[in-house]
Design a binder for these strands. Sequence first.
DNA 1: ATACTAATTAAACAGCCGGCCGATTAATTG
DNA 2: CAATTAATCGGCCGGCTGTTTAATTAGTAT
Lengths: 264, 264
Amino acid sequence: MPKDDIRVRDKDDSSAEAMKSASSQSKAAPEPEAAPPESAGKRGRPTQRRRAGPGRPEGVSNVRDEILDAAEIEFANLGYAGTSLRNVAEAAQVTQALINYYFGSKYGLFEEVFLRRGRQIADDRMQRLEELRRSGKPPAVADIVRAFLMPALSMRSTAAGRTFMRLQARLHTEPPEISYKLRNEAYETSTRLFTETLRDALPHLSEKDVYWRMTLMIGAYLYAFSDTHRLEEMAPGIVNPDDPEEILKAITSFVTAGMLAPAP
Amino acid sequence: MPKDDIRVRDKDDSSAEAMKSASSQSKAAPEPEAAPPESAGKRGRPTQRRRAGPGRPEGVSNVRDEILDAAEIEFANLGYAGTSLRNVAEAAQVTQALINYYFGSKYGLFEEVFLRRGRQIADDRMQRLEELRRSGKPPAVADIVRAFLMPALSMRSTAAGRTFMRLQARLHTEPPEISYKLRNEAYETSTRLFTETLRDALPHLSEKDVYWRMTLMIGAYLYAFSDTHRLEEMAPGIVNPDDPEEILKAITSFVTAGMLAPAP
DNA sequence: ATACTAATTAAACAGCCGGCCGATTAATTG
DNA sequence: CAATTAATCGGCCGGCTGTTTAATTAGTAT
């Protein structure tokens, strides 16, 4: 009985090239060139109804979001290579061709799944940082750490949000061709902003040390928020990884102390 | 031009069942039931030559290890689902059938790739902990942290070791059917030992808090050691993620301070 | 109605997947 | 030498992959 997981990778077809074909060359989903500029999406986004005209109006179907929701679960559980568009289509109760119609390619779908919530977290972070700055004096390290972590933590309040956090943890371990562009697009600006703010709050540290501690904080929260750790396995009943208060206290005290440690 | 990555997942064939078939039922590579008990491996391990007998002697080929080395790279770069036995075979310059001959199945191969170095790290950790205990008084938190991190750090001194650390970071995000059993088998005993030692060294913390801080430490080091972080991208030239001294100082100071933080 | 466009479908395509088999070669013993 | 066992090979199988195409349906404006 032949069974198991499979994957394919073309030898002479670099993944980078495959990526490129994602956002370009989508004949089935042509870019609306004369569309309103604020909706730079690729197709059928449920934006406000287009200016009238003959033909069926665009954006009246909610199938697009149902595909994104189903894909989020599949990608989070099985990774990029492990996910098949057939399973996504089945879970979203649509035909497989619809996915290519809306997203052009598998990578195009992955891109939108990740960016829709990734951008949301990044925006939330920057907004909290801005509020911190508006309230006068330079913010304390603990406040900066909280502003960085809270958006991801509140995302965990819904099942879909928790799924996304698992997807995000996975993304960081995917091959560079898949992951680099996406996490840069989502997080580069906000992470750079936090690093600078942290530098000002930790003047006794070198630039290098601040970068390292940012990295360690990111690794810690990705793992702690991803539900992939072995905590409940090792300490069943003792730890409740779904209690946001518990998580917040545990991680902020640890990370803040780490940030404030004397220069190594 | 059809191209891209593919994967398959049977609908009514749970992965867990697929796993099971890995270590059992290998007809081509039968378990040597009357073999010396210390070599509990599945086949052809280059153990000491077997007691004489007719036929070609076992374990004179080093192909087995070449397959493991090639598979380690593929699994680390592309994940479990993303890796194909064909590519592994090509990289190891053997036929695909040989992989099944030696390892029974794709999962059997993955299992051995992970455990051979995972166990090594776990053993190294416990040995260092034992030495710490032998040297009299209860060990300090900083010493415990170092004993936990050093084995993984020194593994990074070779290219293959760095590859394994990436594989390990990936393993933690793989689906439970693939990952749980393996990381438990490799790390459960040593992690439990470290947690207990840490409890004694941090009497002001509750059991729950110690578990959380272990989790945060693990997340931080997995990410920092995996070469998947964006450090050199964000700070090109400033940070050298390959300098073990730099890494050691950065992570031990951060983690030790986090461990010693007041109870949340 | 009819023209027009978006949304959706079924079917097919070309290609890679893991597992398995029979046959062959290599190395040893008696 | 023959017998025996390990190691290795080439090739096939059913099945799943992402993508494409041609055709159809749904909804709106004239």
